[in-house]
Simulated scan of single mutants.
Amino acid sequence: MAEQKQNTPTVTIFINDNEHISQHETEEENLDDSKVSQWLHPAIFSANDGLVSTASLMLGMGAVSQDINAMIITGFIGLVAGACSMAMGEFITVESTLENDVGERRDPLRAAVAAASAFSVGAMVPLLVTLLMEDYHVTLGVVEGPISVVLAVFGWVGAFLDGSPGCRAVLRVLLWSWVAMVVTFGLLINNDW
């Protein structure tokens, strides 16, 4: 028995007499949008992680040493270590997902570079803010303002990509990020090391 070939219909939408869009073209545009979302969403989370973890490390070091140079060195070490960790984790995850797909060999390296870059961008925020400050006490008070603004932007972009309410996402990102920084600072401020 011969198999019948099924043709999938193409729906044509007429905008006016001269223009029309096929369903196939619309689906291709949606796929392009989803590709952007696929790399942008993890990049936002990596940048957020870089910002919060580096700021927490720097604030913790500031609580112990009360030395701005120690905070900057700690932030730089946190940036390098975190970027390497993000790159390795992303490389391994993507490589294991695509193990059987010979045509996608370069994707794990791209994913690793993207994760490390996004983490580094986030980590640069507290480093740059601290580099601009001269006094330790001013740094601890002032560093939270610019960090909070950038965290709010990350929260809003993440919510936009998810299609969820922006205000709630911003508040959630700010709250949990502040908790991480306060816990790190609080654990070390009263301890004699």
Rank of each mutant, 00 (worst) to 15 (best):
G78H: 08
G60C: 07
V52S: 12
C84M: 15
G50S: 05
M58I: 07
S65D: 08
A81G: 03
A81P: 03
A83Q: 04
M86W: 02
A70K: 10
A83H: 08
A87C: 06
S65C: 04
T74S: 00
V80G: 11
A83I: 00
I68Q: 03
N69I: 08
D67C: 12
G82L: 11
A81C: 14
Q66W: 02
D67M: 01
G75K: 11
G75F: 04
G62W: 03
G62I: 07
G82K: 11
N69Q: 15
L51G: 02
L51S: 03
A70V: 05
V64C: 11
G50T: 01
L79M: 14
A87W: 04
G75D: 02
A81K: 15
M88S: 15
V64F: 09
G60V: 06
G62F: 05
M58S: 01
M86K: 12
F76W: 13
T54L: 02
S56T: 15
S56K: 14
L51A: 01
M86R: 00
G89D: 00
S53K: 09
V80P: 11
A81I: 10
G89T: 11
Q66G: 07
S53F: 10
L51V: 06
L59I: 05
V64M: 15
I73H: 12
A55V: 06
I68G: 01
D67V: 05
M86N: 10
L79T: 10
I72K: 13
L57I: 14
A87Y: 00
I73C: 00
G62E: 08
V52R: 14
T54Q: 06
G89A: 02
T74F: 04
M86P: 09
T74H: 01
G82C: 09
M88Q: 13
T74W: 07
L51K: 11
G82W: 06
V64E: 14
S85V: 03
A63V: 03
V52Y: 11
G89K: 00
A87F: 00
M88C: 14
I73Q: 13
G60W: 06
L79I: 11
M58H: 06
S65V: 08
M71I: 09
S53R: 02
G60Q: 03
A87L: 02
G78I: 05
L51Y: 11
L79N: 09
M86F: 07
N69S: 14
M86V: 07
L79R: 08
A70Q: 13
I77G: 08
M71Y: 05
V52H: 12
F76H: 13
G50F: 06
A87K: 09
A81W: 02
A63R: 05
M71T: 04
L51C: 10
G82F: 07
